[in-house]
Computed example of a mutant assay.
Amino acid sequence: MTIVGMNHFTVLTAALEDTVRFYTEVLGFETGARPPFAFPGARLYAAGAPIVHLVAVDALPAPAAGVLDHMAFSATDLRHVTSHLRRRGVPFHLGRQAGSGVWQLFLHDPNGAKIELDFDPLEPQPPEM
């Protein structure tokens, strides 16, 4: 067996509408087709692929984060993203990866799932830093 790539992440949520709104309005995902499962949820797409699967539950398990620490996405336009997050009041932490210089921006979704956005090291520093 050879792993050839990541297929998707599944996020459990007790607040489906808020979570869909976060991923679409804050991170720019698009909602898309979802199989007719017997349980509520949503599929969120990036570049035509269903990257984040949301499953609605009555209550989140404890601890909510489980054993996975975070999910990471490649992103572009660091200056726009940081301005967008500030306007929406979404807290984040921005730093540079040692050695590579990759910009790493960390934030959390409404369910507490940690998200990393990685930006090319050549992108200009946001003016707010």
Rank of each mutant, 00 (worst) to 15 (best):
Q104H: 05
F106K: 07
N111D: 09
L60G: 08
A14L: 06
A72K: 01
N111K: 07
I3D: 02
G101Q: 04
G89I: 10
A113D: 07
E123K: 03
L117S: 02
L27R: 03
P40Y: 01
V67Y: 09
H108E: 15
R86L: 11
V4L: 13
G101C: 02
G48P: 09
A75G: 09
F73I: 08
H84P: 11
A33D: 14
I51W: 10
F73G: 05
R79S: 11
A38I: 09
H93S: 14
E123N: 04
A56C: 09
G41S: 09
L122T: 15
V57G: 00
R34A: 07
V102W: 01
P50F: 10
A75K: 00
L54A: 05
G32Y: 07
Q104V: 15
F29Q: 03
K114V: 11
V11Y: 02
A59C: 10
G41A: 00
A38M: 13
E17G: 11
E30L: 12
F22V: 07
S100H: 12
P63V: 04
D58W: 05
P40L: 01
R96I: 06
R96Y: 03
W103S: 02
V26W: 02
I3L: 13
G48V: 10
R21F: 05
S83A: 15
P50Q: 10
R86W: 05
T10L: 07
V81E: 00
R87D: 15
F39I: 12
W103A: 01
F37C: 06
G66Y: 03
L94K: 02
H108W: 05
P126R: 05
L27D: 08
D18W: 06
F37M: 13
L117R: 00
D58R: 08
R43M: 04
R34N: 08
A113E: 05
L44G: 05
G101N: 01
H53A: 15
G99N: 11
P63T: 06
F9Q: 06
M129I: 08
R96E: 01
E17K: 12
V26C: 04
R43F: 13
K114C: 08
L122W: 02
P35M: 08
T76L: 07
R87L: 15
F22Q: 04
A56N: 11
